[in-house]
Computed example of a mutant assay.
Amino acid sequence: MKVNAEARQRLSALLRSHEDEILRRWTEISARTLRGRLTNAELQRQVREVYAALLDILEGVGDGDLTGAGGGESRGALADLSRSWARQGFTPTETANLVFTVKEVALGLSESADADQVTADFLGLSLIVDEMGLYTFETYAKAREEIIADQTEQLLELSTPVVKLWEGVVAVPLVGTLDSARAQVVMEKLLQTLVDTGSAYAIVDITGVPAVDTQVAQHILKTVVAARLMGAECIISGIRPQIAQTVVALGIEFGDIATKATLADALVHALRASGIEFAKRKVS
Rank of each mutant, 00 (worst) to 15 (best):
E138M: 07
T139M: 09
E21L: 04
R10P: 03
R45G: 04
K103A: 07
T136V: 15
S274P: 00
E253S: 13
A53L: 06
K2W: 03
D196F: 08
L155V: 10
L250K: 01
S274A: 12
V61A: 10
R281I: 13
L78I: 13
Q117H: 07
V185S: 04
Q218C: 00
T246K: 00
V248P: 07
F278C: 00
D130F: 11
W85L: 14
L11F: 13
Q184T: 15
L54G: 04
T177G: 00
T207A: 03
T101L: 12
I206A: 01
P241E: 02
D56N: 12
W85H: 15
S159Q: 05
L125D: 11
A143G: 07
V224L: 04
A149F: 04
N4K: 09
A86S: 15
D205L: 01
L165A: 08
V102C: 08
A217N: 02
K2R: 11
K260I: 00
A227R: 01
D63C: 01
A69T: 12
T27Q: 05
W85E: 14
G36P: 11
M132P: 10
M230V: 02
L98E: 12
T27N: 05
R25G: 00
Q218F: 07
V118D: 10
S180N: 13
Y51W: 12
L15S: 08
E157R: 15
A31V: 04
A258K: 07
G36S: 07
T33L: 12
E188A: 11
V185A: 05
A13G: 02
G168V: 08
D65L: 10
Q192K: 15
I57Y: 09
F100N: 15
E167H: 14
A270Q: 05
I148L: 12
V105M: 02
T27R: 03
Q192W: 08
L107S: 13
S12F: 05
V129Y: 08
K280R: 14
H219D: 04
A143S: 15
D265W: 01
S199V: 03
D56L: 07
A143D: 10
L263H: 02
S159V: 04
S126N: 12
T207D: 00
Q88H: 15
A69G: 08
D205E: 04
D130H: 13
V186N: 03
Y135W: 14
E19Y: 04
T193A: 08
W166M: 06
A141Y: 10
W166D: 02
T101M: 13
G238H: 03
L155K: 03
R35A: 09
T91K: 14
A41M: 05
S12L: 11
Q154T: 10
L194H: 01
S17E: 14
V162L: 02
V102D: 07
R24W: 08
V283H: 05
E138A: 08
L15Q: 09
R75H: 09
R37F: 10
A113R: 14
Q46L: 09
K103R: 15
E153L: 09
D63T: 09
L109M: 06
L11A: 10
D20W: 03
S74Q: 12
E131Y: 05
R182P: 03
L156M: 11
W166N: 01
S284F: 08
E21N: 00
A115R: 13
I128S: 07
F278E: 01
R24S: 04
L165T: 06
E131N: 14
